[in-house]
């Protein structure tokens, strides 16, 4: 990084900079450290709630059964492809990170044309990733065809539901657990999962199921077809927070692209802005590496 022009006036200790990095780059690093703390807090919350659920005997959602949709495979061939799409998203983000670092490298050589090219492809990668995320969110919220039923607890005082106060007129969504993978003529309901995460598998299952009113499945911040509500909440918050970072990154890249093409950095004499935005973009990729592992693989 020796050939990057450094504004020494802006550095601590003047002529002998203790960090040998420009003010802007240093502040980007400090921002990223604090942002990493926020993301860590999200993922640790996920871990703590998951361990809590396990210690209570509540079954957590299995990502392999939740994220089974992939474009084309799902729409045209009706094939379930667990984790295939999210794997693709991971590759797209890693690729966009590679094009970003190539842009930074081109910036060191002050090659305006190459910087412009690589920044453009990075931006395309980011937009593709966001589109993929939109598809995934749509299917997560929409839910599967097993559906859900709303049980009016107040009318069922004879069948107490775990974690539900029958005297408070509470309603609870009940999700079927089928004996086969999907609902069909051969499958039967072997269990019910309440929207508070509890699982019922005894002889009361048919009575509870019959008493319910059909309603939509899927997931939102209150109910979750796939497992405890906390899983859906954290899915929305973690991937949503990450997605908003990707979106900010795309906006920053767009500004960068415009400035590169206008020759702003050529006039400035250095392409350090590419490095600073590059740091941010790599950080977004880094976060996804952790989200991919802890949300989808483990």
């Amino acid at each position: 990084m020796a050939n990057v022009a450094v504004d020494k006036r802006a550095l601590i200790e003047g002529e002998r900079p203790i960090f040998n990095a420009s003010y802007g780059k240093l502040m980007m690093w400090f921002f990223l450290v604090s942002d990493a703390f926020t993301f860590s807090a999200f993922l640790i919350t996920y871990g703590a709630l998951r361990f809590r659920a396990t210690s209570m005997g509540i079954s957590w959602a299995n990502p392999e059964e939740v994220f089974t949709h992939a474009p084309i495979l799902h729409e045209l061939f009706h094939i379930e492809a667990p984790l295939v799409f999210v794997g693709l998203m991971t590759f797209i983000l890693i690729l966009s990170s590679v094009t970003m670092v190539l842009a930074v490298e081109a910036g060191h050589r002050r090659s305006k044309k190459e910087v412009s090219k690589w920044v453009f492809w990075t931006m395309i990668g980011g937009i593709t990733f966001l589109s993929c995320q939109a598809y995934e969110w749509y299917h997560f919220i929409h839910g599967t065809e097993g559906g859900a039923r709303l049980v009016e607890v107040s009318a069922m005082q004879d069948i107490p539901l775990p974690g539900i106060d029958a005297t408070k007129q509470d309603k609870v969504k009940v999700f079927p657990v089928w004996s086969t993978k999907e609902e069909n003529s051969e499958s039967e309901i072997v269990g019910l999962r309440l929207s508070n995460g509890r699982l019922i598998t005894d002889e009361r299952v048919p009575a509870i199921w019959a008493s319910g009113t059909p309603t939509t499945g899927g997931a939102n911040l209150h109910v979750n077809e796939y497992g405890p509500p906390a899983f859906a909440d954290l899915f929305f918050f973690v991937t949503g927070f990450h997605g908003s970072h990707v979106f900010s990154g795309v906006v920053l890249l767009l500004i960068l692209l415009i400035n590169v093409n206008k020759g702003t950095y050529e006039r400035r004499g250095h392409y350090e802005m590419v490095e600073k935005i590059g740091l941010y973009w790599h950080f977004v990729d880094l976060v996804w590496v952790f989200v991919f592992t802890f949300f989808y693989l483990i």
Binding site: G47, L49, R50, T54, G57, I58, S59, N62, K181, D202
Partner: peptide, 28 residues
């Protein structure tokens, strides 16, 4: 997190719940 669940008092109305670990759910 591993201890929160253990501290939750068990109400009598949840006797019929199967305490199955996630891996043993029927769907799996």
């Amino acid at each position: 997190g591993g201890n929160w669940g253990k501290q939750t008092p068990k109400s009598t109305s949840i006797e019929h719940i199967e305490h199955l670990p996630a891996q043993q759910m029927p769907i799996n």
